[in-house]
């Protein structure tokens, strides 16, 4: 029943130390589509992303992961402190059969794409700003030319202009190479700008509160469309309910 290359999760339930954090999650992400997982903090978004990416095995439920080269951008940059920016990007390529020089040149190219030049490439993480570290982490993920890209608040530490630029980069990459993208965010505008479909997680344990789809192609979404869409979605009863606990608490 599932078409080729679809990421499918059914009945996924997970607990940490006896506390249930996810309950009965069903979702399908078809190849080349962009799905945003939206929800207040503590709703299990990161856990779900790790399960989808194969970093965690759920207590119950099934996940089909028909991909070979997953790439993550984590909430924290998680760079090796003893490697330069370029060394960190090249480290992500360690699993591919590439010569060292090839890895380094790919790393250099990708760093330029995220806006880090020659001078920045030889700096160590502790010499980089928070936003620069995030960009290195994104470059590390894009460099391996993944077939699925899992983003955990990847753009949240960046200023507005930069975060737009990085979103653009991910969107173009997704379109050009048909990458499946799953992104976790608490920022509605990020979801509206990038995603084809939005899954809203809420409650403790997290359940799917609602599913939305955004039909206009991502490249045709201008600021006016994004604003209108945000207003429309924010007005939905299900969304208001999902985010209420964090607003009052």
């Amino acid at each position: 029943m599932s078409e080729e290359g679809t990421l499918v999760a059914s009945g996924v339930t997970h607990s940490f130390a006896g506390t249930k954090v996810l309950d009965g999650i069903d979702l399908r992400v078809s190849r080349g589509s962009v799905v945003a997982i939206l929800g207040p903090s503590g709703s299990g978004k990161t856990t779900l992303l790790h399960i989808l990416g194969g970093l965690l095995t759920p207590d119950a439920g099934r996940v089909d992961r028909p991909f070979e080269r997953p790439a993550f951008v984590f909430q924290e940059p998680l760079l090796l402190p003893w490697r330069t920016a370029r060394g960190n990007v090249a480290f992500g390529l360690a699993g591919l059969r590439l010569a060292r020089s090839e890895r380094l040149s790919r790393a250099r190219t990708m760093l330029v794409k995220v806006g880090l030049g020659q001078d920045d490439a030889v700096l160590y993480p502790h010499q980089l700003s928070g936003g620069m570290k995030k960009r290195v982490a994104l470059a590390r993920a894009l460099a391996i030319e993944p077939d699925v890209l899992l983003l955990d608040e990847a753009f949240s530490a960046l200023d507005v202009g930069l975060s737009r630029e990085m979103q653009q980069l991910v969107r173009l990459d997704a379109q050009e190479r048909g990458v499946t993208v799953v992104l976790v965010t608490h920022d509605l505008s990020e979801a509206v700008r990038l995603a084809d479909r939005v899954i809203v997680l809420a409650g403790r344990p997290g359940r799917i509160a609602t599913r939305l789809s955004i039909d206009r192609p991502a490249r045709l979404r201008d600021d006016a469309f994004v604003e209108a869409e945000i207003r429309r979605i924010a007005a939905l009863e299900a969304i208001r309910d999902a985010f209420r606990p964090t607003l009052s608490g």
């Binding site: 998680l78 480290f91 699993g95 590390r140 391996i144």
Partner: peptide, 20 residues
């Protein structure tokens, strides 16, 4: 976190030892 990251990128055992 670094171990998880290396696992996520499916880094081979040798690189895990040497780099992480």
């Amino acid at each position: 976190g670094l171990r998880t990251m290396a696992r996520a990128f499916r880094v081979p055992f040798g690189a895990m030892i040497v780099d992480v």
